[in-house]
Simulated assay, not measured.
Amino acid sequence: MVHIEGDRLDPVASISSCKICRGTAPLCGVVDFNKNCEERRGHFLPLAAIPIYYHRCGECGLVFTHAFDRWSKHAFARHIYNAAYADVDPDYIAARPAANAMAIANMVARGDGLKCLDYGGGNGRLAALLRERGVDAHSWDPMEQAGTEPSPDSFDLVTAFEVLEHTPEPRVTVANALSKLRPQGVMLFTTLTIDTLPPRAMDHWYIAPRNGHITIHTCRSLDALFEAFGYRVHHLDQNTHLALREVPDWLS
């Protein structure tokens, strides 16, 4: 059984303040810590008997939990991003990086000598695949225990695939990712937006603490989040988004 060392909100407040727009966010529901995304494919873990409470903002629709607000990197590595993580997200090791590498390589081929950073790159597989294609690609993950953080204002493109749903501090994470961009740089990222929750909201497959899905966005929450830093977001689809201040020549 997972033991979480005093890192959840206790007691849980019935009303919270949104982590993005500061709107009023009442309790939305509760799930077991072991709820995971692969349950939709029949992969159920034993109950951990640890309740994870989520709030939902009445203004921007953000769904979030305070349960992991005080967690250290060590706690995340021990309880979530451990050796069993591939069981609840099997695509992150190879399938997702391979698919993303092709899309990014085609995107940056329109420019000359563009420098790319895969933010939250995990095992670094995506950056490695891009380098094989001749792209000046780098990887850095703020959840890793080691590694040198890249310098600010260094990259033309920052990617963040399946990152924003994992952070307990969305403003801090986005500020850090955007700081790596050059003045005309753009950020391409994926995170599933859920603008309309079902009546039994906590049944949604993407609300999954065992996957580290602790901050679930809407298009409105992403717009508000990036607008605070002077960026606008183009929602390419429900999962894929592009943040920029102005369209660079290589993207026009």
Rank of each mutant, 00 (worst) to 15 (best):
T159D: 01
A160C: 13
A160G: 14
E162A: 13
E162Q: 15
V163E: 08
L164F: 15
L164H: 13
E165D: 15
P168A: 10
P168L: 06
E169D: 06
E169A: 12
P170Y: 13
P170N: 07
R171A: 12
R171D: 00
R171Q: 07
V172T: 15
T173W: 09
T173R: 03
V174C: 10
V174K: 06
A175C: 01
A177K: 02
A177F: 03
L178R: 08
S179D: 11
K180V: 03
K180I: 10
K180F: 13
K180Q: 06
L181T: 04
L181E: 04
L181N: 04
L181S: 04
R182I: 07
P183F: 08
Q184S: 14
G185N: 00
G185S: 05
M187W: 01
M187C: 15
M187F: 14
L188Y: 14
L188G: 01
L188E: 05
T190K: 11
T190I: 13
T191M: 03
T193S: 11
I194V: 15
I194T: 09
D195N: 14
T196W: 06
L197S: 00
L197G: 04
L197A: 01
P199E: 14
P199Q: 07
R200L: 15
H204D: 08
W205N: 03
A208S: 15
P209M: 02
P209G: 01
N211C: 00
N211D: 10
G212D: 08
G212P: 08
H213Y: 02
T215G: 08
T215C: 15
I216Q: 09
I216W: 13
H217Q: 09
T218A: 06
C219Y: 06
C219Q: 15
R220Y: 05
S221A: 12
S221M: 10
L222A: 08
L222T: 11
